[in-house]
């Protein structure tokens, strides 16, 4: 019963080992000259750490005949190890700087596009004799302000009524 399954599992194991070797070799290549321009420089130690953390965790787990549960545990630990390592990597000044720079670039690219898009849309709507987005937003803001004013008036009336009530009481 176990022969074809074991063969299948062995094939899977060989494939996993070979691909891991290739992958580890690939991520292990460090070129000092190209280091400043290497986009993987930040992530390479993270990947290695993740793999090591997962291997450590898995090595401490007792083997069980319940293959499905074992497989689920294997994946849980894999995710947990990566989560921990990514968490550590993201909790660094380097990552925060990188994120800040990416956001800056996004805003720098987006600001003129957004402005031009809005202007073009407004012009189109005006030419079609329709209210533009900014005009509609303006009307909505006025309604919100009106609501606030009405509430203030309502508060004032309530306060006067309460005072009158208090005066009328013996």
């Amino acid at each position: 019963m176990s022969d074809p399954t074991t063969q299948l599992f062995d094939t899977w194991r060989r494939q996993l080992e070979e691909s891991t070797q290739a992958w580890t070799k690939l991520v292990g290549q460090v070129s000092p000259a190209a280091a400043p321009a290497d986009p993987m420089a930040f992530w390479r130690p993270v990947l290695n750490q993740g793999l090591e953390a997962w291997a450590r965790m898995f090595a401490q787990t007792p083997a069980s005949p319940d293959l499905a549960a074992q497989w689920k545990q294997f994946l849980d630990q894999w995710i947990e190890a990566w989560s921990r390592v990514l968490g550590q990597a993201m909790n660094t000044e380097g990552f925060a700087q990188m994120m800040g720079r990416s956001l800056e670039q996004m805003l720098a690219a987006q600001a003129p596009v957004k402005k031009a898009g809005e202007q073009a849309l407004d012009q189109l709507l005006v030419s079609l004799n329709l209210a533009s987005r900014s005009q509609l937003t303006g009307v909505a803001k006025q309604i919100v302000e009106l609501e606030e004013r009405m509430e203030r008036v309502e508060d004032g009336v309530q306060a006067i009524l309460r005072r009158l009530d208090a005066k009328e009481r013996p």
Partner: peptide
């Protein structure tokens, strides 16, 4: 990392082989 990974695979498959 590569050796550790091989260890993990070994452990996983020996668990399976033992059960099978």
């Amino acid at each position: 990392a590569q050796e550790r990974f091989a260890g993990v695979v070994e452990r996983f498959t020996s668990g399976f082989n033992g059960a099978a």
